[in-house]
Design a protein around this nucleic acid. Structure first.
Length: 927
RNA sequence: GGGCGCUUAGCUCAGCGGGAGAGCGUCCGCCUUACACGCGGAAGGCCAGAGGUUCGAAUCCUCUAGCGCCCACCA
């Protein structure tokens, strides 16, 4: 079946994806007869579209799933999306304020006000807000699903999950209740990170620190008794309103007198004690620090150690409260301005210095976070972390690349309790009910009707939802139906691989390992592959504001998804980042075009020559094989008809099959090591340079020739190669390979997706043949170089003289004269040990031969002279280096035998080349 | 303050103990009946710097410089 002249990705991609899906090829089922290979998708947030990072990670996962599927595993890729509690909040709230969600609001039956005033979530109320969340989810969740499909992701869509759906909610409740019953979850007052805009607590991980240019204020606190003062330094003067002490280092000579005394807190006129605490840095500022336990983590600890009072001076919206005295009800920055002003007026502001320090920002909305005292739910982590550290230490779970292990350990060994409650509405509501009468808390799976302590029916469910990462932590088993006893998790858990970005190693990877070990008593996955972060071509983060975003779907439109997938795989080295440019994608698009045309060529030649006689082939068929089908597709089997199986057959066949076997081995080895770039580049090299540049050119002789047997043989090899190339490439570029596969005259399976992944044949690997072929290539290249340098028109034929003493080389040239004719436009090839250089013939000198191409007209002696000199210098340098080694007694004594042999061989070759070059240069001077 | 990574051809990057590689770009020829999304040829590098280990180092170790990232309660 002939291929159209150009490949149309648009049509093919949609067609084949539906084809695979409707034939159930993506589905993974419990199958005791096969080994499972499962991947659980890192669920994309339902906060918009898929970006290049998603495209990369899902391409990699799909490559592995397709590879393993073809390799005989029972594969299952569990897809799904994440409800992304706080991230969705931020986006919805922004949308409400800008009135961009009116259509969704109408959809959920909310009465949308006519006037264009900004809406807030409080206008809607909790019920409508959650409804809006689901409407949002339906819109973006399906968008993501569509984009994953566009990518070609072969997910088992029957098993699609959402972190907030019913089954996942059951898992979340079960885990919460059990952790509570086991004493891992507690509720308490702590100093936490508070986002004044989101109005919720955040974990440390959700706070992004940013170096900020600020001021360091030196403030005098007068002694309560007698004259004098102590000066403290602070970056946040407004928080002094909540100071309950001053701290100095216990061994700071300057302040020994002060310890235990009292100072007057300026502006508030409050007496506060001076305490000694080891946490104070003598070198920083004045060595004396104000203690504000209500608004600083370190101060909170100091206060606890010394029994200092805790005063909060800020409200949840970061305005000052009644404890701020005269400064109540001000925005925090306004309060700062006034405090500083008044201190200055009172002569208590000693000086102000410029100071760079790290300021925490909300990860989702970038608002400056505020440390506040608040009542929250926490998970005690230390005990959960221990086994999770062990499984990495023991190697039960592998990290690739393994440098991330250290990062993981550092965090896990210093792990702190995890605040899991959030003052948000979109998320898993905490399964805890507070008794309005006795204040007891009831934590249960089903909504209770009465307080478990006093029996009062006056109970209210906790208002908070859980950190979005809480449900993510359960994902590897919740997607398999846990806590139900499903056959799925018994078969597919633990999965073989997690592929993700290193940016969520703490947020997600660590927590999955802890939860998996705790609830399943087993690791959640055997290996974690950390893919590189996608940057633009200059190493800049892709961002809308910078305008350097490369959108996967736009690339699909322009170049086809296969081109993007191929590029991502080819660039995916195991570094920390990947630089991607549109140019790269264009380049791999060209590779696909090359593949397409090579396939077109092969199929053309299989078809044209299978036609019965009477229909002369358009490609040089002379009809001598009258009546015989030269390519018997029906009887074709994978390796049937290939003589080289027994070490026979033409040089080029044996060579390409040897190269094929090596390529298969390399591809498998690279994929097994997650070296996607190596795998992709190896295939690129083989397909383009070995198969297209050399083999297809060489095989034309037989295809266009008149010997039917030779034709059939070539056809079988061609078919075998094309089949294997398609199979090898399919995981990387699934669409185009299927499109071609469907037109193979003897395809072995209905779809390439279930074709067997090629297995290398050791008996086909033949180093001798590869060396011989290389000689042929070198000779042909030499002739081409001369012709090109001397500007011989490509159409013009020329005689070629080859001087070679080696009988094998002579034989090789004799046997393959046609190749010289076809590939180097040689009208005649004269080879022998005593071949004389014809007059006016430029030459190229190889280690084992000299090539001359006599030219009519003028010779560019200078150019040739320069080239020969350069070659000579190189050869001499090479020779010198080798000889130095061989003259070294230590080398001869200590280097391995084969290395010494190699050096000796090199020395011989270099010496011969040097001699030949010297001779030729001499002759050149004379001519 | 700790930790990690990077520095190889004009650009983007592979290679990570035994003869310096790719893609793009550049230059020179070619519409050769699969492909101009192509074919053929060429130029271009003291592998950041300094020490060390080794018979042998772009590759391993130490230090230095520049760039980047992560973590951290110096207010």
């Amino acid at each position: 079946m002939e291929l159209p002249k150009a490949y149309d990705p648009r049509e093919a991609e949609e067609k084949w994806y539906s084809f695979w899906e409707s034939n159930h090829h993506f589905e993974g089922n419990v199958n005791p007869h096969k080994k499972p290979f499962a991947i659980v998708i890192p669920p994309p947030n339902v906060t918009g579209g898929l970006h290049m990072g998603h495209a990369l990670n899902n391409t990699l996962q799909d490559i592995l799933i397709r590879y393993k599927r073809m390799d005989g595993y029972e594969t299952c890729w569990f897809p799904g999306t994440d409800h992304a509690s706080i991230a969705v909040h931020v986006l919805i709230e922004r949308g409400l304020a800008n009135r961009e969600l009116d259509d969704l609001l109408t959809e959920i039956g909310y009465h949308v006000p006519k006037e264009k005033r900004p809406l807030t979530r409080h206008d809607l109320g909790r019920e409508y807000f959650v409804k809006l969340g689901w409407a949002w989810k339906n819109r973006y969740g399906s968008r993501i699903r569509g984009q994953l499909r566009a990518l070609g992701a072969s997910c088992d869509w029957r098993r699609e999950s959402f972190t907030l759906d019913e089954a996942r909610s059951r898992a979340v409740t079960e885990v919460f209740v059990r952790l509570y019953e086991e004493g891992f979850i507690y509720r308490g007052d702590r100093l936490i990170n508070w986002c004044p805009r989101c109005q919720t607590v955040l974990s440390d991980l959700e706070v992004e620190r940013e170096e900020t240019e600020g001021q360091l204020y030196y403030i005098r606190y007068p002694f309560a008794q007698g004259d004098g003062f102590v000066t403290v330094a602070t970056t946040r003067p407004e928080t002094m309103l909540g100071d309950t002490g001053v701290a100095v280092h216990p061994r700071d000579e300057r302040y020994q007198e002060l310890i235990g005394k009292f100072v007057i807190l300026p502006l508030m006129k409050r007496e506060i004690p001076v305490v000694a605490d080891g946490a104070v840095d003598k070198e920083f500022g004045t060595g004396a620090v104000k203690v504000t336990p209500g608004h600083d983590q370190a101060d909170f600890e100091i206060a606890r150690r010394h029994g200092l009072k805790v005063i909060s001076v800020l409200k949840p919206d970061a305005t000052t409260n009644e404890h701020a005295g005269d400064y109540a009800n001000l925005d925090r920055y306004e309060a700062r301005r006034r405090v500083v002003e008044d201190l200055k007026t009172q002569g208590l502001l000693e000086r102000v210095e410029q100071h760079v320090h790290a300021v925490g920002h909300c990860q989702r909305c970038t608002t400056v976070i505020e440390p506040l005292i608040s009542t929250q739910w926490f998970v005690r982590m230390k005990e959960l972390a221990e086994p999770a550290i062990q499984v990495i230490e023991s190697g039960e779970i592998q990290f690739i690349p393994d440098r991330w292990i250290k990062v993981y350990f550092d965090w896990m060994r210093n792990i702190r309790d995890w605040p899991i409650s959030r003052q948000l509405w979109w998320g898993h509501r905490i399964p805890a009910w507070h008794c309005q009468d006795c204040k007891a808390v009831t934590v249960v799976r089903q909504a209770p009707t009465a307080c478990s302590q006093c029996g009062s029916a006056n109970i209210r469910q906790d208002e908070d939802v859980l950190d979005t990462w809480f449900s993510s932590a359960l994902w590897p088993f919740s997607v398999m139906g846990w806590p139900e006893e499903t056959p799925e998790w018994k078969y597919f858990y633990p999965t073989q691989l997690l592929s993700t970005g290193h940016d969520i190693i703490f947020f997600w990877v660590a927590r999955m390992i802890m939860m998996g070990l705790h609830f399943m008593k087993k690791i959640p996955f055997e290996r974690v592959f950390f893919h590189p972060i996608v940057k633009d071509e200059h190493g800049q983060k892709m961002s809308k504001s910078k305008g350097n975003v490369i959108d996967p779907l736009e690339m699909k439109e322009k170049y086809g998804m296969d081109a993007l997938r191929c590029t991502l795989a080819a660039l995916c080295a195991q570094g920390k980042e990947m630089r991607l440019s549109v140019q790269d994608i264009e380049g791999y698009k060209k590779f696909l075009n090359k593949l397409w045309n090579a396939a077109r060529f092969v199929l053309m030649n299989l078809e044209a020559l299978t036609q019965p006689s009477g229909h002369p082939s358009p490609v040089g068929h002379d009809g001598s094989g009258a009546g015989a089908k030269r390519f018997d597709a029906a009887s074709f089997s994978e390796s049937g008809g290939i003589k080289t199986l027994r070490g026979e057959g033409p040089l080029e066949d044996r060579w390409i099959l040897s190269r094929l076997s090596r390529t298969i081995m390399q591809t498998r080895a690279s994929l097994d090591r997650y070296e996607f770039n190596q795998a992709a580049k190896g295939l690129y090299e083989f397909v383009w340079h070995d198969f297209c540049d050399w083999y297809l050119e060489l095989v034309k002789t037989r295809l266009y020739g008149s010997a039917p047997h030779a034709q059939a043989e070539a056809q079988h090899v061609l078919h075998h190669l094309l089949t294997n190339i398609l199979q090898l490439l399919h995981p990387f570029i699934p669409f185009i390979t299927e499109e071609i596969w469907q037109r193979l005259p003897a395809k072995t399976t209905d779809s390439i997706i279930i074709a067997r992944y090629p297995v290398a044949r050791n008996e086909w690997i033949d180093e001798e043949i590869e060396r011989t072929m290389q000689k042929l290539q070198m000779l042909i290249t030499a002739i081409r170089t001369i012709r090109s340098e001397m500007n011989v028109p490509p159409q013009k034929q020329a005689k070629v003289f080859i001087k070679a003493e080696d009988r094998q080389v002579q034989q090789l040239v004799q046997d393959y004269k046609t190749f010289f004719q076809e590939l180097a436009r040689a009208s005649e090839v004269i080879v022998g040990p005593t071949v004389e250089r014809p007059k006016a013939a430029p030459r190229i000198v190889l280690e084992w031969a000299e090539v001359f191409v006599p030219l009519e007209g003028l010779l560019d002696l200078q150019q040739e002279h320069r080239r020969l000199r350069q070659d000579l210098e190189e050869a001499r340098a090479g020779l010198a280096l080798t000889l130095r080694k061989l003259d070294n007694a230590d080398f001869l004594e200590r280097a391995p035998e084969e290395i010494i042999e190699k050096e000796k061989r090199k020395a011989r070759e270099f010496r011969e080349k040097v001699q030949r070059l010297e001779q030729n240069l001499q002759l050149l001077q004379g001519s």
